[in-house]
């Protein structure tokens, strides 16, 4: 009862209320995922609660569902392409933003952010129309490059904030030891940036894999990505197969979380 001692009633009730809402929100965040995972093991062929028994058949069904597997592979390809493009385009841009000695470094950082600030569907529509006018029809490649443009800002920001906290003495030491700028970049700066690049890679990959707003307008007619396929599946069927897909995704999310927390630490994600 130490907690109550010397506190006014208003204080106890007020803070109690705030903490109660906090606990409610945390339960709200996690409960739906737990319910879905439970459902994914249910034996019945329609979504209901509580489950009647335990089975793995929905997980098996996911990998036997040809279109779903293909969609997963497509999204995997998009995710990887987006990640590679974001590293190739984003890391040098972050270098230029932080190390640049030219006018307009701020303008450059803002410019990179612009496509990210525009609603995804507006970017998707714009790319679709522009592509149609120059004869580029929607495809897995158009989808990848569009999502890259949409999300590259995240990579730039992550690397930028790490770069700004690096000790400049390290590179000066390399220069004093006669390293060329390229050598010091390769052997000093780059290894120090690795955690930030890795964290950026996780987030850009997830966006490439999961993005719907840009993808729904730019994806190829034949190679549908997972979100588009899932949206159709959710709308037109009620079998727990989607729950099994959720189960798979939750496992992947936990893996990604472990990667992020060991590379830059969870508390750094926000910066």
């Amino acid at each position: 009862m130490k907690w109550f001692r010397g506190r006014s009633l208003v204080d106890v009730v007020g803070i109690g209320l705030v903490l109660a809402v906090a606990v409610f929100s945390l339960v709200l965040l996690v409960a739906p995922s737990i319910i879905v995972v439970v459902i994914s093991f249910d034996t019945r062929a329609y979504v209901t609660f509580p489950p009647a028994g335990f089975t793995l058949r929905w997980y098996k069904a996911v990998f036997e569902h040809g279109e779903l597997v293909e969609a997963m592979l497509n999204s995997l390809q998009v995710g990887l392409t987006v990640t590679v493009l974001c590293i190739v385009l984003g890391v040098p841009t972050a270098l230029a933003c932080v190390r640049g000695r030219f006018r307009g470094t701020t303008a450059l950082s803002v410019f990179v952010l612009v496509p990210h600030m525009v609603p995804g569907i507006v970017l998707g529509v714009a790319v679709l129309f522009a592509g149609a006018l120059v004869g580029v029809s929607p495809s897995i490649w158009l989808q990848s490059i569009s999502i890259t443009v949409f999300i590259v800002a995240v990579m730039v920001r992550t690397v930028q904030s790490r770069l700004m906290r690096l000790d400049p003495a390290l590179e000066e030491a390399a220069a004093n030891l006669r390293a060329t700028p390229f050598q010091s970049l390769r052997t000093v700066t780059f290894p120090l940036l690795m955690p930030a690049i890795l964290a950026g890679a996780v987030f850009t990959f997830v966006e490439g894999f999961d993005n719907l707003s840009v993808a729904i307008f730019t994806h190829g007619f034949r190679d549908r990505p997972l979100p588009v396929e899932l949206l159709a599946l959710v709308q037109y069927t009620s079998s727990p197969i989607v729950a099994a897909v959720s189960g798979v995704q939750i496992v992947l999310a936990i893996a990604a979380l472990v990667v992020v927390s060991t590379s830059i630490g969870l508390d750094k994600v926000n910066e």
């Binding site: 965040l29 995922s33 997972l226 899932l230 989607v242 959720s246 936990i254 990604a256």
Partner: peptide
């Protein structure tokens, strides 16, 4: 952070179930 790493569709599906 974990929910942000899973698809929005999947998280919406959970509400369909609930």
């Amino acid at each position: 952070i974990a929910p942000l790493l899973t698809s929005g569709i999947v998280r919406t599906y959970a509400w369909l179930v609930i």
